[in-house]
């Protein structure tokens, strides 16, 4: 009898691979090039939520620009979890960057007092858009560039407030799935309290991303990474993915293409911007 050599057992739900050292080096280079090179801006502003995405973004910015040039802004609302505020402070302390706290309660409530019937979703969107207002104004005040923190999973799911979380002109994490951001966070030394907690937008009490989405990030990322290569649903099923989860992921991605684009503009001339009149973003 000859020995039998078998391939490693394939787990369809294995996390998308990442070499965090390679990714970190590349993203630091990206931040330096975009801030210092292309735009000639030495300072960055990052909205620090206490979550892993903004923490990783802050670490990368500090590696790229130095701690004194990175402004980390906490923007709590009165219902925000105190734990989030504390976790954000952990990042500020660990990095030695410049920390700021801007309470958005008065701004948010100043508007919402006229909209008392606003449900949780509307209230959350107002908070997100208020935070973006603060972030851009803080950037103007400090001659800095606001840096985006959205990851690929939430972008694909449309799990963000349009023209709020996605507005900063550059985004280092937008092509990394959530599970890859976690890997990168561990490599960069982000405090475990931040990496290991359940991700949450913290717009409502006890809210978690995975509760909102109806699927664990680890499973979603595995499905997304194959789906984006072009596998059809039946091919994903054959490879061991759960049909209900595939359907959920497909539905979320396909119903949110619009959120990953600029506003739809009616074309009326043959000089329509971004249709006929085309120039690269860095031209």
């Amino acid at each position: 009898m000859l020995p039998v050599v078998d391939p490693p057992k394939r787990d369809p739900y294995a996390a998308p691979k990442i070499d965090p050292a390679v990714a970190a080096r590349w993203l630091v280079g990206f931040l330096r090039d975009e801030c210092l090179g292309r735009r000639g801006v030495e300072n960055a502003v990052v909205g620090l939520s206490g979550g892993v995405d903004s923490a990783v973004t802050a670490y990368l910015c500090v590696h790229a620009l130095g701690p004194r040039n990175v402004h980390l802004v906490r923007m709590p609302y009165r219902t925000s979890s105190p734990a989030s505020l504390n976790d954000a402070q952990l990042v500020i302390d660990a990095l030695g960057a410049v920390g700021h706290t801007v309470d958005i309660t008065a701004a948010v409530d100043g508007y919402l007092q006229y909209e008392p019937e606003a449900d949780a979703r509307r209230r959350g969107n107002v908070m997100a858009r208020t935070r973006m207002l603060v972030l851009f104004d803080q950037s103007a005040k400090r001659a800095a560039l606001p840096i985006g923190t959205g990851n690929k999973t939430e972008r694909l799911f449309g799990y963000f407030t349009w023209h709020a979380d996605d507005t900063p002109p550059i985004n280092p994490l937008g092509d990394l799935f959530k599970t890859q951001v976690w890997e990168l966070a561990r490599y960069l030394g982000v405090p475990p309290a931040i990496v290991d907690k359940a991700p949450s937008a913290d717009l409502e009490a006890n809210q978690t991303d995975e509760g909102d989405l109806g699927i664990r990030y680890a499973r979603a990322d595995a499905i997304l990474s194959s789906m984006l290569l072009g596998y059809r649903d039946e091919q994903l099923h054959a490879r061991g993915f759960d049909a209900a989860e595939v359907a959920l992921v497909r539905r979320r991605v396909e119903s949110t293409h619009w959120k990953r684009h600029l506003p739809t503009t009616a074309m009326l001339t043959n000089t329509a911007i971004n249709e006929f009149y085309l120039r690269p973003v860095d031209y």
Binding site: L2, V4, V5, D6, P7, P8, L229, G230, Y231, A238
Partner: peptide
């Protein structure tokens, strides 16, 4: 590399794959 044997051992190497990975 789905599977690879050692250089010096007589053996049977098993592999399973989906052919439509070619299209992808």
């Amino acid at each position: 590399i789905l599977v690879e044997a050692d250089a010096r051992e007589a053996c049977v190497v098993r592999a399973e794959f989906f052919l439509d990975d070619v299209e992808i």
